[in-house]
Amino acid sequence: MKYCLILVFAILSLKVSAQQKQFSTDDNGKFIYYEVVETGTGKDSLMLRAKAFVDAYKKTIKKISNTDTSITAKGITVIDKTVLVASHPSGEVSYNMTFEAREKKYRFWLTDFKYIPYARDRYSNYVPTTNIGTPLEQTPGKLSAGAWKDILESAYNKTAKLAENFKKALATNQTEKLKKKIETISTKKW
């Protein structure tokens, strides 16, 4: 009984913690995902690693401009809808990403989040229904409130995952990573 209560409490705590995850807002009331990261790496290396990250994600992130210390890019992330154990894309969220590097620290933020719903086309592929997105900050009507909440939650989780991957990429020396060869194992001697 005691263990059951602990388990229920743990699940409820996880649920509450999951519900608390949401975008912050900036000075203009727009949703923003913002992080400042202190690191031991120099500015030039950070810039190289950030460029390599954008190149690696070229299917979903397009570089708009860059300077010696900054990169701006546009990206999209696909939102999935789960039915039983399988899922399908239900829409995409576009965003603007800005990265700025200084000596041994950098910051990045994602904002201007806009949602475009997908619909199934004649070949049963999911495609955008429009090219004009709806800002995520928009308060939905009663009819679509439930679906909108799921979209917000999914958009936040996908953004947090992208940010996590970005930070990992900026903490990794790409040159050393490439130099590392796959270890060969000889079965002749043992």
């Binding site: 039915v83 039983l84 399988a86 899922s87 399908h88 894309p89 199934r120 049963s124 999911y126």
Partner: peptide, 8 residues
């Protein structure tokens, strides 16, 4: 990609 399931 994961298996997509959809319908109407």
């Amino acid at each position: 990609s994961p298996l997509e399931f959809s319908g109407s």
